[in-house]
Structures are given as C-alpha cells and as structure tokens.
Design a protein around this nucleic acid. Structure first.
Lengths: 186, 186
DNA sequence: CCAAGATAGTTGATGGATCAACTATCGTCA
DNA sequence: TGACGATAGTTGATCCATCAACTATCTTGG
C-alpha cells in the first residue's frame, strides 16, 4: 500500500506499533480478497441463472435436510449458517412465502420457533443440488490440487475459529469424520 | 413458484452424472464457507467500530494510493476491485460526497472518468491503515502457519482466475439467441 | 416467588447492492 | 463518411442486509 508501506521500518519511539504485512503476506491477502469476491459472484450467478433457490437459501435448506425431522430452531440455524438472527428472520420470511419452509412453535420453550423444511423445500433442494455441486466443483474443488484443497480447508477452519472467538461464542469443532445424516446434498 | 421449476436430470442414461463431493471435500468446502463469512464479518466490524472508512472504501483508497497521480479510471478501479461498474459508481458517489475522492474527465477519452483521491481521502487511508492491518493480522495472517498462508494465497489465485474466466460463459448460457456465436470466451 | 437480566425472535427504517435500461463516446470497416 | 457495434459510465427501481428498538419468555439469585 503506497500510503502505508513507506514507514514499515524505523518507527518513532512513541505510539502503538503496527506490524505491517511483508510482500508475500500482502500478496496472499490480496489473492484471498479477489478470490473470494470472484468466487462468490460466480457461484451466485450459477444459482441465479439456473437454479430455483439463491445460494443463501440453498445452504439453509441443506442444514434443514440434515437435521432430525428436517427441523431446526431459528437460533440453531443462525449459528450454523453464521447469520444474524435478524437476517435469518427476513430470509425465512421470504422462503415461507414461497412455501419452502414453515414455522412451528418449539414444544418446551414458548420463545422458540422451529423452522421446518416442506416437501416443496426438499424438492427445491434436490432440484438445485446438481447444478450447485457442479459449480462448486468447477470453481473450487477442480480448480485446486487435492493437497491444496486440504490445506485450504484446514486454514479456513482456523480462520473461522479465530473470527468467531473474538466476537462472542465458542468453537464447536466439527471434523471431516463427523457422522450425521446423509441428505441429498453436495 | 419455487418448486415448480423442473430441469431434466437423471433421465439421460448417457452421462452428465453429477460428481458429488466426498467427505473431505465437503468438509473443506464448508470450512471455506464458514471461514469467509465469519472473517469478513469480523473485519467489517473492525472498520465499523473504529475506522473512518468501510472495508470496501478502504480497498478503493488503497488502489488509488498506489496509482500514479493517485488517479485511476473508473473501469480500471472496477477491474482491480472486482466490482460491477454500477456498484462502483454508487460507491464513488458516496465517497465523493464525503470529500474522499473527486471525479475528473479523462484527457483523451470523453467517455472516461478518472477517480482521484483527495488529501482528505489520503488522510482517511492513513488513519484507517493501522487498525485495518492489525485486524487482518489477527484474523488471517497470525491465525495461520506461514506455510499455510502461502498455500492459501496460491489456491486463492487459482480460484480467482477460474471464476474470472468463467463469468462470460454464464452470460452466454443465459441468452439462447446468442448473436454471432461467441468464440468460447476462454 | 419475584426482580433483574439473559435469551429468542420480530419489526421497521435505513442504506447498500443488483439489474436493466439508458446516454454518450469511440473504433472500424465498408 | 457514416452506420454499427463495442465500450464507459450513470440512473433509478427493487431487493437484500444491517441495526436499533421492541415484545415475550425463560433463568437465576436473593
């Protein structure tokens, strides 16, 4: 950065020290920025063009498809999808209007709301899955060496844990060896 | 609507089978999703809380700070930042209102518009840089081993290239009456 | 057993992102 | 030269994300 790189050495004695990024770090960081931006744009386009649900809606349906009874509490969904409660409310509003999910009360807790995938929601998921997975393959999995993909996964897990750790909340580690129901997704 | 869309799948005995993701691939893909989501949320928060410009504005200023005369054409900015022209127009509108940048005509091309960083824009960049870099360090660089960071950079470069090359093809698929038959567009 | 605070979820206003349509200029080829 | 398509950028409508404020319920310490 032209503005900031001029004084990476020899700082005046006072003030907070900033450890600037070296060339390689900066290069990697910028590739990260550009890559994520272009990747999600392209993946979103794939959904907009050929699939019945947006990318965000798709991930919501995937989570539901893997849950017992195809049901999850709003708060659990928000946690799994890393969404704010407000955003989830609005998203579920839209999906409920289209008949993809339904809201039910939670049996033991009258504050709670369960989000349940309807048959139409499941059908939309099944409909979208092949195009989605094909796009993820083209844009991510097949674009990398298997070894790179593995490192990427581990690195992103660390990044997720770090970012999560300094907002609220704690890490609930999942592993590639996690059991779980096998839905028709990915 | 929603579930009304039907695409022929699983009917062609010939081929076009979807190659689903295996366990490890799926795990890595989901870490990628979660990691990017949480990372950008946390980094955005860092800007909102303590810094005079948003993350997107910051990157725009960085690009300008590195350009000759602190000046770039709108189209060049859009390319570097991977933004649509429309989005860039609106973003520059807002920044111009705040005095961070100015629009000038491009000397040899009366269609063109140059975006120029003002002194106030430069000051905002200098002001924001330490907090920004510190956050990037905490959330990304220092969260990874140096080797992981290097692999991440290379992987993201490949992803960016792949997504970039693919974008035009999506547009082609949208238009059934494609005029003049695009030459495969990379 | 109740007051205080935590948790769950919604709401509505605001502002940013997206898309299609539009103006204007440029390049080129007949 | 001038018509046509490509390029550059803007506009405004619409949609989505974000935030603060709000209701309602649950939990806990005194």
């Amino acid at each position: 950065m032209g503005a900031t790189r001029t004084r990476e050495r020899d700082d005046d004695g006072g003030g907070a020290e900033v450890r600037w990024l070296d060339e390689e770090q900066q290069w990697a960081w910028r590739r990260f920025l550009e890559g994520t931006s272009r990747f999600f744009e392209a993946l979103g386009d794939a959904h907009d063009v050929g699939l019945p649900v947006t990318l965000g809606e798709y991930h919501l349906l995937v989570q539901l498809s893997e849950a017992p009874e195809r049901t999850l509490r709003m708060s659990a969904l928000a946690e799994f999808l890393a969404l704010s409660r407000s955003r989830l409310t609005h998203t579920v509003d839209r999906m409920e209007r289209r008949g993809l999910v339904v809201r039910n009360p939670v049996p033991g807790d009258r504050r709670g709301v369960n989000c349940v995938m309807t048959d139409a929601g499941y059908a939309a998921l099944v409909d979208a899955a092949p195009g989605h997975v094909t796009a993820v393959r083209r844009l991510l999995v097949d674009a990398l060496e298997p070894g790179e993909m593995a490192v990427l996964g581990r690195a992103m897990a660390k990044i997720a844990a770090t970012a999560k750790g300094l907002d609220p909340a704690v890490e609930l580690a999942t592993d590639p060896a996690a059991p779980g129901a096998r839905p028709a997704a990915e």
